[in-house]
Write a protein that binds this DNA or RNA. Structure first.
Lengths: 133, 133
DNA sequence: CGGCATCCTCGAGGATACTG
DNA sequence: CAGTATCCTCGAGGATGCCG
C-alpha cells in the first residue's frame, strides 16, 4: 500500500537525483523522440543551451545507471552514438505523467509562487492560492 | 505529442525543483497517508531525520505553491495543522508512478551505478549494466 | 509548540580554454 | 568531433542556539 515504507525512500531519492538533474529530462526526451541513436553534437544541438561539460557529465551518469547506451565508433573523425536502453525507456510513463501534470498545473503553481513571494518579515495574511478546473 | 515542446520544459523544471527537494516526497506521503491534518511536530516525527528548519522551509515552499495548506490555531500552546490541498493530491498518480518505478528498478540502478564507479582515468571497457525481469 | 537566526560545508553547474 | 581541465559562484541543506 504505502509506497514509502522501509528502504523505499532511499530508492526514490536515488531516482529523483537522477531525473531531477538539470539536463536529464531534456536529454531523455531528445533521445526518446529520436528514431535512431543520436550523435553527441546532434544531442547537444537538440537539448539546447547545455555546455559540453554538462552534457558529458549527465550522459556518464545516465550511462552508469543503465538508462542510456553509448557506442563509440573508432573512426576518423570520431563518432559516438547515444540511445535510451530498455531500462531507460521504462521511465517513459512516469516522466510523461510528470510532464502532463506540469502541463496542466505548472502555470498555476508558478503563479501561486509568484503571488506568495518573499513574505515581508511577518505573515499576517494567509497566502492565496487557487486551484484551476 | 512531444511533452517537451515550447515553454513546457520550464514547467517541468519547476515541478521537479519542487518534488525533488530533499524532503518533499517524505512530507508528501506522510500527509497523504494521514487521514486528518497533521501537526508540525507530528509531521516531523513521521518524516524522520529532518531538522525543524528544513521542515519549515519545505512546508513554506509547498504552501506557496499551493500543494499544502497550513492552518494556525491561535491557542496556547500553539497548534498548526498541515494537509495536502486538492492540488497537492493531484500529484499522487505521478509520484506513485515514480515510486513504483523506483521500487521495481531502483535496486538495479543502484547496483549499476556501484558497478561503474569512478572510471579510473581512461575507459577501455564498456560499462556493465543489466536489465531485470 | 512551532518555529526563526546564524554559521558553515559541499557539490552542482556555469564560463572558458584546451586536446586526442 | 567529442570530449577534458580549471576556475568560480551560488544556494541547498546540516548544526546549533534562541524565541514568542
Amino acid at each position: 500500500m504505502d509506497p514509502c515504507s522501509e528502504q523505499c525512500p532511499i530508492l526514490i531519492r536515488e531516482t529523483l537525483d537522477l531525473i531531477a538533474a538539470k539536463w536529464t529530462v531534456p536529454i531523455f526526451f531528445a533521445l526518446d523522440a529520436a528514431a535512431a541513436p543520436l550523435r553527441y553534437a546532434d544531442l547537444q544541438r537538440r537539448v539546447g543551451a547545455i555546455t559540453p561539460k554538462e552534457l558529458a557529465k549527465h550522459l556518464r551518469q545516465l550511462e552508469a545507471a543503465g538508462l542510456v547506451s553509448r557506442q563509440v565508433h573508432p573512426t576518423v573523425p570520431p563518432r559516438v552514438d547515444y540511445a535510451l536502453t530498455e531500462l531507460g525507456h521504462s521511465l517513459h510513463p512516469s516522466l510523461e505523467s510528470l510532464a502532463n501534470w506540469a502541463a496542466r498545473f505548472g502555470e498555476t503553481v508558478a503563479s501561486n509562487r509568484k503571488a506568495n513571494e518573499r513574505p515581508p518579515a511577518v505573515r499576517l495574511i494567509k497566502p492565496v492560492y487557487r486551484v484551476p478546473d
